[in-house]
């Protein structure tokens, strides 16, 4: 499903170059929950951004079901993201002025579908947020916010979820809940690529990969 091959990405600053990805290769098949663990600054987030079609690598290739997002025009790549990828971030990145329901519906801006409202409600119920649908993010706990972010990522039925430290700001119970939901997504046939330095995440993964200084090792 998701195939990352020989990825290299170098950030060129004024003072020095930072090799964020150094010949990284990784596959995540359907139903596979892959965790990438490593310390801060080792290139985990860069790996997710490259995999999600947001950051073009200097070399190497990305393919999702055989389709290379970087061979597409920016507009087509945006459409590819809306149809194929769901993002979950450590900071949740919920829109502060939208209710839970509207936040979950934000991806429908990019990909219109008639059943978006109903699916959003189903997801909200599924994630235990039924009574919070009309609340704004500021009225939610951090665990609830992350579940809203997860519901949002799932709205357009993506093929792969790219999660960047999704449990970084959560307590143990909330982390478990979020990881369990990600596991359910994988169990339903999706692929999950989760980068974290949280050792607990590995317990939900089928495969754990270590990352250090831009390099991956099984």
């Amino acid at each position: 499903m998701l195939h990352l091959a020989d990825l290299t990405k170098v950030y060129r600053g004024r003072a020095k170059e930072v090799r964020a990805l150094d010949d990284c290769s990784l596959d995540a098949g359907p139903g596979e929950f892959v965790v990438v663990q490593g310390p801060s600054g080792c290139g985990k987030t860069t790996l997710l951004l490259v995999a999600g079609g947001l950051l073009r690598p200097d070399s190497g290739g990305v393919a999702l079901n055989g389709e290379d997002p970087y061979s597409l025009s920016p507009e087509d790549r945006a459409r590819w993201r809306s149809e194929s990828v769901g993002f979950v971030f450590q900071q949740f990145h919920l829109v502060p002025y939208l209710t839970v329901l509207d936040n979950v519906l934000v991806p429908s801006l990019a990909k219109r579908s008639d059943g978006a409202g109903e699916r959003a409600r189903d997801l909200i119920e599924h994630f235990g947020l039924g009574d919070r649908a009309e609340h704004v993010p500021a009225e939610l706990s951090t665990g609830e916010r992350q579940r809203v972010a997860l519901a949002r990522a799932l709205l357009n039925r993506p093929k792969v979820i790219l999660a960047d430290e999704p449990t970084g700001n959560l307590d143990g119970d909330s982390s478990d809940r979020v990881l369990r939901h990600l596991g359910e997504f994988a169990a339903d046939g999706g692929a999950v690529l989760l980068v974290t330095h949280d050792p607990q995440a590995a317990t939900y993964a089928q495969r754990t990969v270590r990352m250090a200084d831009g390099r991956l090792c099984e």
Binding site: G52, L54, P74, E75, A78, R79, W80, R81, S82, E83, F87, H93, V95, V106, P107, L109, A110, K111, R152
Partner: peptide
């Protein structure tokens, strides 16, 4: 800025 970045990441197009 963050909101725009998030929307773009989710596939919202530049024209939108």
């Amino acid at each position: 800025r963050t909101e725009i970045g998030l929307l773009r990441a989710m596939g919202v197009r530049a024209g939108q």
